[in-house]
Design a protein around this nucleic acid. Structure first.
Lengths: 116, 116
DNA sequence: TGACCATATAAGTATATAATGATATGGTAT
DNA sequence: ATACCATATCATTATATACTTATATGGTCA
């Protein structure tokens, strides 16, 4: 039997856990697990300022947990599957309840951004 | 195939991750995974005040991650296996490198407390 | 009992964090 | 080009956090 779990340096793991230790970011990451989202969608979902959302995403990006792709006028964020802590993140997110009603709600309000 | 991972409420998961997002506490938890430790041992290991250690342990205890047992004049801490987030914690700790050299070091210095 | 020890709590301080509003940046499209 | 839009950054503020020292608590054991 092989236990497949890449070890993560203590400092790095600490950084990741601290990032995920914020309710907003944790919820964002859970959403990104199944959906690409852009900043303005997060603003709608979390009801905090665009600035605050942007800063959260920057932190996640700085540690390499998410990546961004421009599509038309929007920048879409998604999980960075090449992160060296991707597996850790996935394991953690597996425990978090689905946040998809938040996306459903967006769609109901006609605020979901669909590209391509 | 069954994915066995008890869902954990977002708020609760956030609390746990925030707690583990501190390097000292994360390291403590990893140590506790294999060893019972008392406050004075942690003081030696982490080289911070007894007060600081005590406060970290209190936070871990408040969320139910650890439990305490008195043995003689010492209070030993251990992982609380009955915690409703025990599985999550275990999954996370699996990614953290072993901290046992710290215990070995303690033993070398004759500072390891052994009871019973 | 009383002294002693390990641990907990209190009070204070410095730093980190999450938010805001205002402004800058930079791509899109007319 | 210029207006517009989404996003990023700056400056500031309020709150949270991790630490320290000093003191309290509460077992243990002579």
């Amino acid at each position: 039997m092989t236990v497949k779990s890449t070890q993560v340096e203590l400092d790095k793991a600490g950084m990741v856990l601290k990032l995920l230790g914020d309710k907003t970011r944790l919820s964002m990451m859970k959403l990104l697990q199944k959906n690409e989202c852009c900043v303005c969608e997060f603003v709608e979902i979390f009801k905090i300022s665009q600035s605050a959302i942007s800063q959260h995403l920057r932190k996640l990006k700085d540690v390499g947990l998410v990546r961004e792709t421009r599509k038309g006028q929007w920048i879409f964020y998604s999980l960075n599957q090449n992160s060296d802590v991707y597996e850790l993140v996935q394991q953690i997110l597996a425990f978090i309840p689905n946040q998809d009603e938040r996306i459903i709600e967006l769609e109901k309000q006609g605020l979901r951004i669909i590209c391509e």
